[in-house]
Simulated scan of single mutants.
Amino acid sequence: MATILHIDSSARPGRSDLAPHGSHSRRLTARFIENWLQHRPDDTIMYRDVGANPPAPVTGDWIHAAFTKPDQREHWMQDVLAESDMLIDELLKADVIVAGVPMYNFGMPAQMKAWIENIVRVRRTFGFDRSRGTIPYWPMVTDNKSVVVLSSRGDYGYNPGERIAHLNHVEGGVFTPLEYIGITDHHSAAIEYDEFADTRTHQSIMTAENDTAKIVEKLVAQHGT
């Protein structure tokens, strides 16, 4: 059996296929889960809505606690890191992470960034040792996980090689830190033309849903044994 960590980060509370002002990214992640369960109904789905309930941002106390060796931490340090520990434990249980990450001002929502800041952590998901010389860092998430980013964009042309690809910091903003901790299998799909509200929007939705279904088929074959 596989375990899927389903994350939504949109500030919009509903899905665009069910609510007039709903979220496209929530729509895509829901479709991903629905398609996955059609193939493997007994797999485990963990759900976290960071859009509605964002993790606490990293603070000076958090940094102090994280860089203190576990056997030297005071009780308050353990309390400060408790949410981070919970989020990391979820991540480590998952075989596939599917995240709905809409584009806000060319990057990910702050809620999603807070999740990333909490799961990229020394001694838990990456190692650091000065004695290793010029490359003192190494990834600690060594099992074969996959991450899927399902996004939405008001404009169009953000895909690699297209007219404004250089302005897109969503997928890279998620994939880069996750690759740093050891998750290197990346997949993505996105709805564009949202602000145009015309036939191009509807066509983009259909294309993104089809792309999402293809990602599911690939990952079911990859993780479904």
Rank of each mutant, 00 (worst) to 15 (best):
A208C: 03
V170H: 05
Y47I: 14
R123N: 11
S25R: 06
R130G: 01
I45W: 03
R124W: 08
I183C: 01
V148L: 02
M140E: 13
G22I: 07
D43P: 05
W36L: 00
T225F: 13
E171F: 09
D42E: 13
W138K: 13
R73N: 05
M46Q: 15
A189F: 04
S151P: 00
M108W: 08
N168R: 06
P102E: 12
H39I: 14
Q78G: 10
L5N: 01
V220W: 00
K93R: 12
E195K: 11
L150Y: 04
G182P: 08
Y47G: 11
R15V: 07
N118F: 00
L87M: 10
E195A: 11
G182A: 09
F175E: 08
P160E: 11
A65P: 04
R121T: 02
G22E: 04
Q72V: 06
K93D: 03
G172Y: 06
M86L: 10
H166D: 15
A99E: 10
V216F: 03
Y137A: 06
L28G: 00
S131T: 03
P57S: 15
T207P: 01
L178T: 00
Y158F: 15
Y47F: 15
T176K: 09
D211W: 06
S25I: 03
M108P: 04
F128P: 07
Y156E: 10
D194I: 12
V50S: 10
R163G: 07
I63Q: 08
R48W: 09
I183V: 10
N210P: 06
K218H: 12
G14E: 01
T207V: 06
D42W: 12
G157Y: 09
K113P: 11
M46S: 13
V80I: 09
G60L: 14
T29N: 02
A56N: 15
T3A: 08
L81F: 06
R12P: 00
V174T: 11
L37H: 09
T134F: 14
G22T: 00
T201A: 08
A65V: 05
A221R: 02
P109Q: 14
Q222R: 05
H223D: 07
N210C: 03
V120C: 04
I119A: 07
V101L: 08
E34W: 02
H169R: 14
E192A: 01
D143R: 12
I215W: 02
D71K: 10
I33S: 07
N159P: 04
T176M: 13
R200M: 13
D143P: 06
S84L: 05
L91M: 14
Q222H: 06
I215F: 08
P54L: 15
L81P: 06
I33M: 01
G173R: 11
R15G: 01
S131L: 03
D95L: 00
D143H: 12
A52P: 09
W76Y: 14
G182T: 10
L5K: 00
T44E: 12
S152D: 01
H75P: 05
H39S: 15
I164G: 06
K145A: 00
R40L: 11
T68G: 04
V216H: 04
D8Y: 00
E192I: 02
T225L: 12
H64N: 13
D194N: 09
P41D: 09
L5D: 01
I164D: 11
